[in-house]
């Protein structure tokens, strides 16, 4: 015979036992005693009244909360509070990402220039071959290490308190973590854009 689980015992003590539990307690002395004991404990607790404050207390409490709320100002979106708290970190992340993109483009231009001077047209594969180990280089990047060190001291609870954990620097991080194919595609797009803007730009402004 299976005795009642804690949940079934609580249901029985609170007066809404399932049919099986009722039938069981009628036959089982041990479970019947448990249910009676739980009922006694519940009754003893319910016998302890609330400490009801003076009726004036509600007006005073409401006024006190109203003052505190107005001092706090209008409720801000979660990202605003979060953003201000981590603004320095965000700035470093954006700077690091900008520097990363700049260095990549500079490498591409340098490779393109040297190849052009040798009479060869540089391919995207060639330019991007240097970035095949981009993830390892990202790990060694001092600016990215700085971001990592700064974020190491941030408590997840603090971040959760201000409304969750949005992806900090997610887009910048995604840039570093592109696969070779994705980088190749991005480079093709950038090259096409550069070529198009170079062709469209007039040699003499205003003409």
């Amino acid at each position: 015979m299976r005795h009642l689980s804690p949940g079934e015992l609580i249901d029985a003590a609170e007066g809404h036992a399932a049919a099986r539990a009722t039938a069981h307690t009628e036959a089982c002395e041990a479970c019947r005693r448990q249910v009676a004991s739980l009922r006694e404990a519940l009754a003893a607790l319910r016998d302890v009244p609330d400490d009801e404050p003076s009726p004036l207390a509600w007006d005073l409490l409401a006024a006190r909360i109203g003052r505190a709320v107005r001092e706090a100002g209008a409720p801000k979106p979660w990202w605003a509070a979060w953003g201000w708290r981590f603004a320095p970190l965000l700035m470093v992340a954006v700077l690091a990402a900008t520097a990363g993109v700049g260095v990549t483009l500079w490498h591409q231009r340098a490779a393109s220039g040297s190849a052009a001077s040798a009479g060869a047209v540089p391919g995207a594969d060639e330019a991007l071959a240097q970035d095949a180990d981009g993830d390892e280089r990202a790990a060694e990047d001092p600016s990215w290490s700085l971001v990592s060190d700064l974020s190491a001291g941030i408590s997840l609870d603090d971040a959760a308190d201000v409304g969750g954990l949005p992806p900090l620097g997610g887009s910048e991080r995604a840039l570093w973590q592109l696969s070779s194919d994705e980088r190749r595609t991005l480079a093709s797009i950038l090259e096409a854009e550069l070529a198009e803007s170079a062709a469209a730009a007039p040699i003499i402004p205003g003409v």
Partner: peptide, 15 residues
């Protein structure tokens, strides 16, 4: 405690 509860609720109302 009650004041703190309502203040937190107010600040996080958009959540």
């Amino acid at each position: 405690l009650s004041q703190e509860v309502f203040l937190r609720a107010f600040k996080g109302l958009d959540r």
